[in-house]
Design a protein around this nucleic acid. Sequence first.
DNA 1: GATGAATGAGTGTTCATTCAT
DNA 2: TATGAATGAACACTCATTCAT
Lengths: 189, 189, 189, 189
Amino acid sequence: MAKTRREQAEWRREKLLDAALDVFADKGVDGASVKDLAQAAGVTPGLLYHYFDSKDALVHALLAERGFLPQLRELLALDTGGRAAAEVLTELLGAFDQLLADNARLVALFFSAGQARTALGELAAEGQLLIGDFLAARVAAGELRPHDTRTAATALFATVAIGRTTGSPVDVAGLVELLYPIEFDLRKK
Amino acid sequence: MAKTRREQAEWRREKLLDAALDVFADKGVDGASVKDLAQAAGVTPGLLYHYFDSKDALVHALLAERGFLPQLRELLALDTGGRAAAEVLTELLGAFDQLLADNARLVALFFSAGQARTALGELAAEGQLLIGDFLAARVAAGELRPHDTRTAATALFATVAIGRTTGSPVDVAGLVELLYPIEFDLRKK
Amino acid sequence: MAKTRREQAEWRREKLLDAALDVFADKGVDGASVKDLAQAAGVTPGLLYHYFDSKDALVHALLAERGFLPQLRELLALDTGGRAAAEVLTELLGAFDQLLADNARLVALFFSAGQARTALGELAAEGQLLIGDFLAARVAAGELRPHDTRTAATALFATVAIGRTTGSPVDVAGLVELLYPIEFDLRKK
Amino acid sequence: MAKTRREQAEWRREKLLDAALDVFADKGVDGASVKDLAQAAGVTPGLLYHYFDSKDALVHALLAERGFLPQLRELLALDTGGRAAAEVLTELLGAFDQLLADNARLVALFFSAGQARTALGELAAEGQLLIGDFLAARVAAGELRPHDTRTAATALFATVAIGRTTGSPVDVAGLVELLYPIEFDLRKK
DNA sequence: GATGAATGAGTGTTCATTCAT
DNA sequence: TATGAATGAACACTCATTCAT
């Protein structure tokens, strides 16, 4: 079970990130001291600086390496060819909702750190854009009735996000049915 | 223009609150030092403690005295008797949107302060509940088609809130039309 | 019941001293803020400076005007001509003990304030000297057996003082009997 | 002369305690700022908090690690079997007196810190009790004349303590002779 | 006399960061 | 790699004192 130096170092780094995520979610980024972070990882404060240049760098690493934004982008970029819009939307929003649920602590961090908040904002914009494009394509294809697809995208995205972050998650299928009652009904049959 | 001592004191207090709102919105609650706050108000740090028991108490005072929650409650509690649902909804969400726009700095504070965040969460829950009740009543009255009013309320509330806080406000009328296309069309005629 | 200005001022001053004695005894001189003192006297901090030049001056005034040192000096200076040494001693120490009991808060102040502690030390020296002189005179007169009157004075003074300040007062008559068993017995007959 | 890191740390801690004892004795606990303490130890204020949780904790450490109370307890608990009461008393009080002399700065601290004062009070009670027991045993054994041993214990203890703390130490042998002239004389022969 | 707004220097304490070991 | 001693600058907060009203 001997670990190579490199493995050991990688393991330490991961442990520091894990611990930091916990502590940040609990106390907020400003509220957590480097000492807190080191203690939670079972390490001395000095060592933290071997792995990260600064506390700030740790936050960035957390966002970059533990962030679910890449996954979300992947999700939104999926080829949906041939499948019903209602089905795709339900699946997509469900996956988004699940992603938020799985990364609750990271989302908490997003709210406490200024820089992270910015990142979240960008993601939201991107997500709404992609969903909007998807909807517009389906309208163009005649599958969905003509409507303000941009607003619809915002509504879908926002509702799932707010539902999850306020602790009372929304029923995704119900949400899609709400906006697209006819399309949804077809699918049920 | 002579001010009495009392007036001068009241003015100082207001100035401190104003300055604090600016600084908090800019740097966040944790990021703003008492020195920052005092400087922004053109005052020594010590004086801040003549008017407020602590930095925390200042945040509370800001929420209590500058908060728009009472206005929002008032808004939601309005009697809507006799008017069309689509009209009421559009007006209500528009007012909510405007409230968020007018209190942008305070909303920023809501995101940076733990305690404020809690207050915001409670408000969101309350708002969604009230809108949901309104919708349910209109469904019962036969004005709106039967649908999941709770989810609809969340969608309406969330969409406006996210739209405003991410800096790309939503078209409220469009949003209502999106959820209630038939009812909205009737109104346009 | 109208008070003249002068009476009113005098009354305020006394009230300030009284309140200060209470607060100092409770929190110590360093631990009591001017605000505390003013509040306890039902007055604003600013007014305190009309009556006393500084917080320090208040402490000095307390020592000078409420101090029991003059009374103690008076006590020790009493003419004891003709009365039995044991009787005089018992009475004297009893009065000293009573003085300490009556001025418990002031004694507490003596322990908390550096300057006051010095004053107490001087008093102790003075008291022991006077008692020593008294004892020496009685030895010279043949009433008391030859002994180290200085040490005896210290013992008498110290025992009463410690007994009172530690909260377990000593039996003064018993103390005199302890040091002067023969003389005391004579007196009892 | 190379010191290991650990030794250096231990040395620093001791130096901080030493310096604190000096400064506290000089200015009192309240009168000494953390900055004063750090400067006296040739250190930055922050470092003090590496070794002690708070200023208060430093006072406690001083009492616990530099306190002479354990030594005093040891002294009083000594087996005195077979030796003359006057001899034991003289030795005991002499040792007590010496202890106070050796720990003058700590005794000064006892007078300035509320918590320390309490500890001192308890010690005094304990000391008087033990001396009282010793005297009572000797009375029972017929070595000392029947007398109020409790008062005698207080007198002995108080006289040495006051003598030393007021800066005019008492002659311990003279004190014992004063209370027990006959027993003392026997011993001299 | 009396107020309390205002100050400036100070308090104890925290903390991100560095670096000799 | 890993430690933890050490720093310096900041922090929230207190307080004796002054003075215009």
